[in-house]
Amino acid sequence: MSNFLKVAAFSLFIIGVYTFFADRLIPPIAPQAPPPLTEVAARPMTADGLARLGEEVFKGKGACTLCHNPVGGRAPLLDGIIIKANERIKGPGYRGGAKDAAEYIRESMVNPSAYVVPGFGVAGTHDTKSPMPDVRGSEIGLSEVEIDAVIAYFQRSAGVEVTVGSPAAGPEGK
């Protein structure tokens, strides 16, 4: 019996040490709380409101900056994307179906593999497949309004007119 007690005490001690280490010695980092369940944002009535919503989505729910940032090099930077987009759709390597910058951004969000910026494709696919998820489904789950809002945000940042989503711009292309 004394053997049993010794072994039990030893095992409990080991478990105690591991628990102490994991619970006390490493920094207690609280993971982010899950995003709220309420999803579809009401469509803002003004272009400004749409762009503001877009900024929130871009930096928050959309998790865009997780990859589109200057540090990791995982995805192309989105600064000046309106200008870059206009160049890309005219470029010889462009395979997608977009006619203007807004369409290009939408296409990149819902069908990222339609055109992959050279060097950013999944390894081994010669830039034919993008590592980016479809923002509508997947872990991100943006609504049509939110996609429009992100486009509006880019347009507003670039100083060009917001062409998407607002009532003035006509019915959304669904």
Partner: peptide, 14 residues
Amino acid sequence: PLEMRAYGKAFDLS
């Protein structure tokens, strides 16, 4: 952040 808003305009920090 990628971008910052101050003095009434947006600054692209990159």
